[in-house]
Design a protein around this nucleic acid. Sequence first.
DNA 1: CTGTTAGGGAACGCAAACGTTTTTTATTGG
DNA 2: CCAATAAAAAACGTTTGCGTTCCCTAACAG
Lengths: 208, 208
Amino acid sequence: MTAVATAPAIRQRKRGAALEDAIHDAVFAELTEVGYAAFTIEAVAVRAKTGKASIYRRWETKVDLVMDAFLARFGGPDEIVGELLADSEAPTRDLLVKLATRICEVSDEAGEVIRAVACEATRDPELAAAVEQKVHRPKHQAFVGLLQRGVDRGEVRPDAVCGLYADILPAMLTYRMVLNNQPVTEAEAAQIIDKAVMPLISTTPGAG
Amino acid sequence: MTAVATAPAIRQRKRGAALEDAIHDAVFAELTEVGYAAFTIEAVAVRAKTGKASIYRRWETKVDLVMDAFLARFGGPDEIVGELLADSEAPTRDLLVKLATRICEVSDEAGEVIRAVACEATRDPELAAAVEQKVHRPKHQAFVGLLQRGVDRGEVRPDAVCGLYADILPAMLTYRMVLNNQPVTEAEAAQIIDKAVMPLISTTPGAG
DNA sequence: CTGTTAGGGAACGCAAACGTTTTTTATTGG
DNA sequence: CCAATAAAAAACGTTTGCGTTCCCTAACAG
């Protein structure tokens, strides 16, 4: 994912954003390969082909580094949410599928990072707050927003706009992908939506 | 100064099962306090008031130790499941609440251990298999069994006996407790059951 | 082209765990 | 009561990663 534009074939020394990208990549690769327990700054430096100093210059702690790498990649569900809500044509069900697909992509790529962050967040209130604010809440709000939009379009019962229903889809996807590390196909995600989510929220009671 | 009359208040040296219990306790305490990343055998030994050697004599690796501690405590959901299915009186809904309560208890006590195990299981197929076999599958089967029992009692639609519906409750509980580290009260668990699970599986369409 | 900035890479001392070994002692079975 | 056993505790050398510092040079600005 590094920027290989019109540059010469061997760029010997990266700087600034390019270097940070490489480090983020290395963090992901390293976390995925050895896990958080065996995760070291040294290994990240080697993998990113940089020196430890360049990393310490930018991040104070291991957690900072991991968190930053995570947010840099998946930081704003905002874009996709805006994008989704802007699409005034598609029915709620299809938008749910789109959002689910996105969640699957992220969970697949960043499963290990998510687990690591969840572990650390337990005893790092600052990290917990960051996750809550930048990941969990936007995701939750995205689903609530989708439900509200569905109400406006007459597809969703007004009393179905609640946190509980908003959480069903992310919970089931995350349960399988992040906790049990089982892949979830788009078809399975669609099945969750059609068999578990839509029947609960739909204005047409028997719908499936 | 030495002789304590009524009971031997100071048990100076534990052996066998008693020692292993103490070590398991220490593993839980340590994991909860410092997390898996900072988890060390030395700290466990100190906390269990034993020597490292006594631990190394019993477990080869850190993962072995953690896994064993976890299974020793929460190894068999079998008992509670048998207990639940044996109760031929209670309606499905109430058994779901009971099971949910149990899951909450376990997740609350062992949240950190579950996260740690989930992290490690990603790259340790043996551990993953153990978790799948001893934790995940029994839990899943418990819910499927409960659904089937509901069908037999005429409370649950026959076509609702499927893995997808069986996973809704554990997924939502686990999503909140284990991943987001938010406590879930019994009332909230009941709400999930009444608003999200029962409406989907119930023979009486409008029930809630 | 030149000076400044910042990255690459190696080396450093330090601290923490590792896993092992040894010594001492409590417990238990005979 | 006496061996045999196994646990507690400390000491061990080793490894590993920490975070820092150093020198040298590539990259960029002027």
